[in-house]
């Protein structure tokens, strides 16, 4: 089970983790292990470093476990090296081996891969995920990187101003941020400010630039989120479909993103919409082209 603790820099994530570990209070949780952003290896050999936690617990099988974890992290040839001579990636592997060697029930990770280059980050992340799943370690993984959080998390916690402001299943949190701050931090597209008003038994989100239907309750000051993946583009207005919004817009920018394009469409407000290259060719997308944005009322999330 991996809980990712995601938040901007300075949100108090590291402090929170230190408290959990008992580093601020004086009584350290001996069933837990912690890995920091820096490897923090002591000026000993790699093996001696990995053995530290076991020595402090008077373990009887120190040598066997040290060898085992050197092997599991793929750093056997480095065992007798002076720890301070390792490269960044090797050192972080040694730090992980040192933490895992004590067979912790809980693992606290404070931005463990933030100092590594992207390929090593991804490789090491997958290795670590597998070990955590295999040993069934309750893990809290602190990161300020949304992609990393989503890649590892079974449960996502968002921290801001020293408080956990939202938590839940990762996809649920991302698609339903409960505050503008969370939405802005998660980089949510199509976030608009206005109000929700009732009209002829329907509810409309509106501001001076845009109006569309929502399933949410009436609210005076409201933020609306429409995720790009919930918007369909059509050359024609779609008539007669109930509870669907159909906004007329103009293509303002086409941003290529590999297999997809991201379009900036002016429809009162600016909407970001993702579209595959195939659909873009079918629609013959071009600058200034008129298109209709279609999305369900239930796809409008009101914060």
């Amino acid at each position: 089970m991996i809980k990712a603790l995601l938040g901007p820099n300075g949100a108090g994530k590291s402090t929170y983790l230190r408290r959990l570990m008992g580093l601020d209070t004086g009584e350290v949780d001996r069933n837990a292990a912690m890995v920091f952003q820096e490897p923090l290896l002591f000026d000993l050999t790699v093996k001696e470093n990995i053995a530290l936690g076991l020595r402090f617990r008077r373990d009887r099988e120190i040598n066997r476990k040290v060898e085992l974890w050197l092997m599991k992290m793929g750093i056997e040839p480095l065992g007798s090296r002076r720890a301070l001579t390792l490269s960044g990636g090797e050192a972080q592997k040694a730090a992980l081996a040192r933490a895992l060697a004590i067979e912790p029930k809980r693992l606290l990770l404070d931005e463990p891969f933030a100092n590594l280059d992207l390929p090593s980050q991804i490789g090491l992340r997958e290795e670590l995920k597998a070990i955590i799943a295999d040993k069934d370690i309750e893990t809290i993984w602190v990161t300020h990187n949304k992609a990393e959080a989503l890649a590892v998390a079974d449960h996502l916690m968002i921290m801001m101003d020293f408080k956990v402001v939202q938590e839940g299943a990762p996809q649920a949190v991302v698609s339903n941020p409960n505050s503008v701050e969370v939405a802005a931090f998660l980089g949510v597209d199509n976030l608009f400010f206005g109000r929700v008003a009732a009209e002829n038994g329907r509810r409309l989100f509106e501001n001076q630039k845009v109006r569309f239907e929502t399933a949410a309750e009436v609210k005076d000051r409201a933020w609306a989120v429409v995720h790009p993946e919930d918007i369909i583009l059509s050359p024609e207005p779609l008539a007669g479909t109930s509870a669907r919004n159909c906004l007329r817009g103009k293509v303002a920018e086409i941003i290529p993103l590999g297999l997809t394009y991201r379009l900036r469409i002016e429809a009162g407000e600016i909407f970001m919409v993702d579209i595959t290259k195939v659909s873009a060719e079918e629609l013959r997308i071009s600058y200034g082209q008129e298109l209709f944005l279609i999305f369900k009322a239930t796809a409008v999330h009101i914060i």
């Binding site: 292990a33 912690m34 920091f36 923090l40 020595r55 004590i102």
Partner: peptide, 24 residues
């Protein structure tokens, strides 16, 4: 400070902590 946190996070206490930091 981070090295001292790391030492304690490894479970070092009392004499163990002193020993490790003196070696360092």
């Amino acid at each position: 400070q981070k090295m001292k946190w790391q030492a304690r996070a490894l479970g070092a206490r009392g004499g163990q902590l002193a020993w490790l930091l003196m070696r360092e």
